[in-house]
Amino acid sequence: MSEHRPQAAAPDRIRTDVAHNARVWNYWLGGKDNYPVDRAVGDQVTGMYPSIGEVARADRAFLGRAVRHLAGDVGIDQFLDIGTGLPTADNTHETAQHTAPHARVVYVDNDPVVLAHARALLSSSLEGATEYIDADAHHPERILAAAEPTLDLGRPVAVMMLGILNFVLDTDEARSIVRTLMAAVPSGSHLVLTHPTLELGGEGNEAAMRFWNENATPPITARSREEFASFLDGLALLEPGIVSCSRWRTNPREREVAQFGAVGRKP
């Protein structure tokens, strides 16, 4: 395990008067790392779109299934998790290292509250390694450069981008970010994605997203299946392809949530 430890977040970087996605998401998952403003906005969004908590839980469960499959069945032992969010149970490194104790995991986030909790993320098995990078998803080259001391980019890597491209409002820019990341990793690497949509029964989320963008940070956008699929161009989709994340490699009768999920392999 690396000896590096992040500095505590500067107090003036943490806004307690404006709701922030990482903390509201933590609230929806039943966590305690949030402020009254996060709970107030979270409750308001839930009132407008009651299934949002179900979306959050389904996204988290999808992460677990994808990591277990990649670490166990595929043999991937390197994970680049971009848009980590606040630590909860069964984080990427815990799930990966349970299956492959030697797995190496790099987390990436630029939220100061996440940074303040990064020590909890930086636990690791003795055989593996876990690192945290304070970086913005809008700057993939910086992410790759900072990840290289921990990850061997000459070997397959699982690039995890769960619920993060929805904060990149320009779709062309989001595609460019994905292309840059996947161009830097070799054949056999995988891309793991989730993204909110107004499809799959998510039409009622439109007003909730508008409320979010007026009252919280960072702003968010939904995307269509076609737009989501464009992020996976050039990759071989693992079965069952692009589905609601709640139905990826689970009971096909599981209730759909308005969050696409997919895993693609770089040929």
Rank of each mutant, 00 (worst) to 15 (best):
D43S: 14
T46M: 02
Y49P: 04
P50R: 05
P50N: 11
P50K: 07
S51K: 11
I52H: 00
I52A: 02
I52E: 05
I52N: 03
I52D: 00
E54F: 04
E54C: 08
E54L: 10
A56M: 02
A56Y: 02
R57S: 11
A58K: 01
A58D: 04
D59C: 07
R60H: 08
F62P: 11
F62E: 03
L63M: 11
L63V: 03
R65G: 09
R65T: 00
A66K: 02
V67C: 02
R68P: 11
R68S: 08
R68D: 13
H69W: 15
L70R: 11
A71I: 12
A71L: 08
A71E: 12
G72E: 06
D73M: 09
D73N: 12
D73G: 07
V74A: 12
V74H: 06
V74C: 04
G75C: 06
G75K: 05
I76W: 06
D77W: 06
Q78H: 10
F79T: 02
F79S: 12
F79H: 09
F79W: 05
D81F: 08
I82S: 02
G83R: 03
T84N: 09
T84I: 00
G85F: 01
G85K: 13
L86E: 02
L86S: 04
P87N: 08
P87K: 01
T88Q: 03
T88M: 07
D90Q: 15
D90E: 14
N91Y: 01
H93I: 03
H93M: 09
E94S: 12
E94N: 11
T95V: 14
T95E: 09
A96W: 06
A96P: 04
Q97M: 08
Q97V: 04
Q97T: 02
H98E: 13
P101Q: 04
P101E: 10
H102D: 13
H102L: 12
A103E: 04
V105A: 00
V106W: 07
V106R: 00
Y107M: 09
V108G: 02
V108S: 00
N110V: 10
D111C: 04
P112V: 04
V113D: 02
V113C: 05
V113I: 08
V113Y: 04
V113E: 01
V114S: 03
L115C: 03
A116Q: 14
A116E: 15
A116N: 15
A118Q: 06
A118I: 10
R119E: 15
R119Y: 09
L122H: 06
S123V: 13
S123D: 10
S125H: 15
S125K: 14
E127A: 15
G128P: 05
A129Y: 05
A129G: 13
A129E: 14
E131A: 15
E131P: 11
I133R: 13
D134G: 09
A135R: 09
A135V: 05
D136M: 00
D136W: 00
A137K: 03
A137C: 13
A137N: 07
A137D: 10
H138Y: 06
H138Q: 14
H138E: 12
H139E: 08
P140W: 02
E141N: 14
E141P: 08
E141Q: 15
R142K: 14
R142L: 10
I143G: 10
I143E: 09
L144H: 05
A145P: 12
A145E: 14
A146K: 10
A146Q: 12
P149I: 00
T150Y: 05
T150C: 07
L151P: 10
L151A: 07
D152N: 14
D152P: 07
L153P: 01
L153S: 01
L153G: 01
